[in-house]
Simulated assay, not measured.
Amino acid sequence: MTLELRGVDKSFGPVRALSGVSLTARPGEITALVGDNGAGKSTLIKCVGGIHRIDAGEILFDGVAQVLHGPRDAAALGVEIVYQDLALADNLDVVENMFLGREDVTRLRTLDENSMERKARAALTSLSVRTVRSVRQKVSSLSGGQRQTVAIAKAVLWQSRVVILDEPTAALGVAQTEQVLDLVRRLAGQGVAVLLVSHNMNDVMRVADSIAVLYLGRTAAQVRRIDVTQTQVVELITAGRSGELGLSGAVV
């Protein structure tokens, strides 16, 4: 499913957080969302997730404009946000976290543990995950990379069509970062539109197909990753334009 923002505005009182933002995230691709602190990245993903109602503009899914009244509306359209803090419950195991609030039940209205275990394993297998030893181990025993794996597999389990990843490699070591980036590539390979929010330019340049840059709440540019260098993207992040590219506000 293609996610598209056209001329999106969002203010909080006198503070304009987003102004005329446009962005496109296509299925089967990783679209990196980058920008300095305060550029509007968090506000943007919360608008797509239905947490904030936009003031103007349009949010389109497969070309159809949608009004999101809350997170349930976004979830019904197939939007899943994996926040940096993951929102996983340490005291629950992998299966319980993946089905939290959406548990399978039997005809007798008891928890269908076998069904949930089977589906959880299938979701992990579909992403070729080998780092999670058991779907019944407590999340508290998992490493940071394994926690990200569970959160991303949860999005696959619920057949999400747009997955937003908020700084998925923050605070991870080199090996765990590589595992998570491989997982993100496989997620996009399943036809999901992935929006990757990241400050790590090395990660962005390694995995992104497209890069959308926000500058002071506006779209500085959206460019194909193969058409730019890391230095040019940094210029867009810090100055809102790149003299070498001659870009400002371009969306591709």
Rank of each mutant, 00 (worst) to 15 (best):
G38H: 12
R53E: 03
A221D: 13
A122F: 14
M98A: 00
R241P: 01
S242G: 06
V95H: 00
V21I: 07
T125M: 08
V94Q: 04
G191E: 10
V213P: 03
G246I: 01
L195G: 06
G173I: 15
A39C: 05
I51Q: 01
R72S: 05
R225A: 13
V194G: 05
L181S: 06
D203I: 10
D73P: 05
E167F: 06
V162L: 08
Q176A: 13
Q159K: 15
G70P: 10
M1C: 06
L165K: 08
N37R: 01
L195N: 07
V213Y: 09
M116N: 01
H69V: 12
G7D: 15
G49D: 07
R72C: 02
A155F: 05
A220N: 06
Q222W: 06
E117T: 02
I226H: 15
R109V: 13
S128R: 14
E29L: 09
V139I: 14
R130V: 09
D227F: 05
I54P: 00
D9S: 03
G70A: 02
Q176W: 05
D166N: 12
Q148I: 09
V67Q: 13
G20Y: 10
E117S: 06
P27E: 11
L245P: 04
L77Q: 06
A89E: 09
V15N: 04
V180C: 12
S210E: 11
S143V: 00
G38Q: 03
M201G: 06
A151Y: 14
I81F: 00
Q222C: 00
D62L: 06
V82D: 04
T238F: 15
R107L: 13
D166C: 08
D209Q: 08
A17F: 04
L111F: 07
V150W: 03
S115E: 01
D93G: 01
T229D: 12
L111T: 12
R186V: 02
K119T: 03
A123W: 12
R206A: 02
F61W: 08
G63V: 09
R206N: 07
Q190T: 05
V213W: 07
A220T: 00
A208D: 14
T106G: 10
N97W: 03
K46G: 00
A220P: 02
A153W: 08
R225L: 03
T31C: 11
G246D: 05
R72D: 04
V233Y: 08
A65W: 13
R102L: 15
Q179G: 03
E167A: 05
L247Q: 09
L124F: 14
E178W: 05
V64W: 03
K41T: 05
T125F: 13
A122N: 12
I54T: 02
E113Y: 10
V67Y: 08
V34A: 02
Q190D: 11
G217I: 07
V228P: 09
A65N: 10
D90H: 12
N200V: 02
V213G: 02
I237V: 14
V184P: 05
R241K: 14
V223A: 15
G38L: 08
R118I: 14
A193F: 04
S143I: 04
V156K: 14
Q84N: 07
Q179S: 10
H69F: 14
G28C: 07
G70E: 10
I59P: 05
L216F: 14
T2G: 13
K119D: 07
L100Y: 13
S134I: 04
T106V: 10
D112Q: 06
